[in-house]
Design a protein around this nucleic acid. Sequence first.
DNA 1: ACTATAGCGATT
DNA 2: AATCGCTATAGT
Length: 312
Amino acid sequence: MTSIEKYEWVLLSNKDRVKPLAILRTEMPIFGEINGIVAGDLFDDRKALAEAGIHPPLVAGISGTQGEGADSIVLSGGYEDDVDLGDVIIYTGAGGQKNGRQVSDQKLERVNLALAKSKIEHLPVRVTRGHKHKHPLSPAKGYRYAGLYYVDDYWCDKGKSGYKVWRYRLIAEKTDSLDYLVKEPSGEYELPKRKQTTGNRIVRDYQKAKNVKAWYQFQCQVCGLAIETSAGLYAEAAHIKPLGKPHNGPDIESNILCLCPNHHVMFDNGGFAIDDNLNLIGINGKLNELKKHRISAEFIQYHRDHYLKNTE
DNA sequence: ACTATAGCGATT
DNA sequence: AATCGCTATAGT
């Protein structure tokens, strides 16, 4: 018996029972590449695109939530302020339309906020071009997945209609992101041999950072500041023992701090360190630590030993 | 070409 | 429960 069937059975047997939201709630957005799909892949329609896991919504152009960020967009030609330069796209937010015409201002809310969140969290956004989006990279029919982009900036403008629109500059993750289009002597665009997808390292890492930031509600563990932006609260995940060679620190919560940008820069560059009692060395104060965090003594010692100046 | 609307999954 | 939407299709 599937969970859905179980749920229906419960409803039949007990009409007063509250809906089990955990079953009905849609899953979190999935960020980054989808297994088995590569840039250049074609899909007949939005249903096929959704079933592949590239872009779940059947109608909406932006997939995601304001809390988690936007994982995918579709360019479908429906917004007159879109600009598509291939590796750089100026995408228009959703809303303010009636019968395909812009008739009111767009607001920075819902999926528009999701794209803003993707910017401040540096999350990758899948991009797909549809046949109604008139562009050399669009397919003649159906939809073509274009690969991962990052939201480089977002702002509001008065659009061609005179109404306010939110705009997002997206930049392709790979400079060779257009390699899937190879001009053949016939004049037709053809697909090259399939490349293996690179996996999802960036997004896996993000999950740990996200956990730590959420525990502290984006408040800096040094000064308590949680920075407010139009996309929501902002904080940075600082690795205590650095990830890169030759340090090879692990990407786990016990090696991550939630810091404001200033204290992140100071920490990474020896402006302060942390002793075994979590007192700060170099500046006044004590590091705020939640019980469940369990910051590793080994890693803060490593940071002391390798980044603090003039130690004996 | 433009316009209306049913449709349905996802979000709030 | 109500709202939304870069569909899809039919009608003018």
